[in-house]
Computed example of a mutant assay.
Amino acid sequence: MEPVEVQIMGDGFIDILYAKDIGKNGLGIHVPKNYMSAKVKCEVNLIISLPGCKSFDASGVIKHAGRIGADSEFKSFGIHFTRINPQHRGLLENYFQKIVADNRRHVRVVPSPENPVRVHATINDTTEVFQVKDIGIGGVGLAGGSSVPDCSPDEAVNIIIALPTGEKVQVKGSFKYSNQANGVLGLCFRELAATDAQRLKQYIAERVRELQKKIDYS
């Protein structure tokens, strides 16, 4: 879905940012790690622009801030609404429900930095270890291998997905795209046993619940 633009106005500053998480009670924003304008407990005025809707204003307070990951160039903070028109809160609720419905059709989650998912892929008799950027029941985005494999789209690749629970999922797939410049790969699953599919679905469902808890800052 299109990003939600948020103008944040505080004591002596105004910034235009984009919401990463959003709910009826608040929103989450990613900013560069050297961002200094807003701090925890800072009260801010907001102008929120939902896709397809007229912009509206609200007020809030920054409840928490933190790094996204040890190597990330960004940090995050959560804003809890202290003033918002009930009609506008309803717009946010509808937007959130659209996100949930879209996720149910095409669920693809980003693993937690604290509990990463890794993939061991056997390519041309060589095993590479990749970090999972995002994963769904139909495929996975990868990064972090020592080299980007040069595989044809039809070439079968055997992979083992190591979940944070300690469980392992075995899959046969094929690469759909690769970016030699940044080492990012996209792999589509071709053969996935029912038991492995169930393990993967359980992980995705649990990760969706974790992310939804972060959306509501009440």
Rank of each mutant, 00 (worst) to 15 (best):
residue 90 G to H: 12
residue 81 F to W: 05
residue 71 D to W: 03
residue 96 F to P: 00
residue 70 A to Y: 11
residue 128 E to Q: 09
residue 68 I to P: 04
residue 84 I to M: 14
residue 112 S to A: 13
residue 69 G to H: 07
residue 97 Q to R: 15
residue 107 V to C: 10
residue 109 V to D: 10
residue 126 T to R: 12
residue 119 V to M: 11
residue 117 V to D: 01
residue 120 H to N: 12
residue 81 F to T: 15
residue 76 S to P: 00
residue 111 P to L: 10
residue 69 G to C: 07
residue 129 V to C: 02
residue 128 E to M: 15
residue 131 Q to C: 08
residue 127 T to Q: 04
residue 124 N to H: 15
residue 80 H to G: 04
residue 88 H to E: 15
residue 86 P to I: 06
residue 134 D to C: 05
residue 81 F to E: 09
residue 80 H to S: 14
residue 116 P to H: 02
residue 134 D to Q: 03
residue 70 A to I: 10
residue 81 F to H: 12
residue 99 I to S: 01
residue 103 N to E: 13
residue 65 A to S: 13
residue 82 T to L: 05
residue 115 N to W: 01
residue 126 T to W: 00
residue 98 K to Q: 15
residue 70 A to K: 14
residue 95 Y to V: 01
residue 73 E to Y: 01
residue 109 V to I: 15
residue 118 R to P: 00
residue 113 P to A: 10
residue 68 I to S: 03
residue 124 N to P: 00
residue 105 R to C: 05
residue 117 V to H: 04
residue 73 E to W: 03
residue 119 V to I: 14
residue 118 R to E: 14
residue 73 E to I: 07
residue 102 D to M: 06
residue 77 F to Q: 04
residue 121 A to P: 10
residue 93 E to G: 00
residue 106 H to D: 15
residue 131 Q to Y: 06
residue 115 N to T: 11
residue 126 T to I: 11
residue 134 D to G: 06
residue 92 L to T: 00
residue 110 V to N: 08
residue 134 D to W: 01
residue 117 V to F: 06
residue 127 T to S: 07
residue 68 I to V: 15
residue 121 A to T: 08
residue 103 N to V: 03
residue 76 S to H: 11
residue 88 H to M: 08
residue 109 V to E: 08
residue 70 A to V: 10
residue 93 E to D: 11
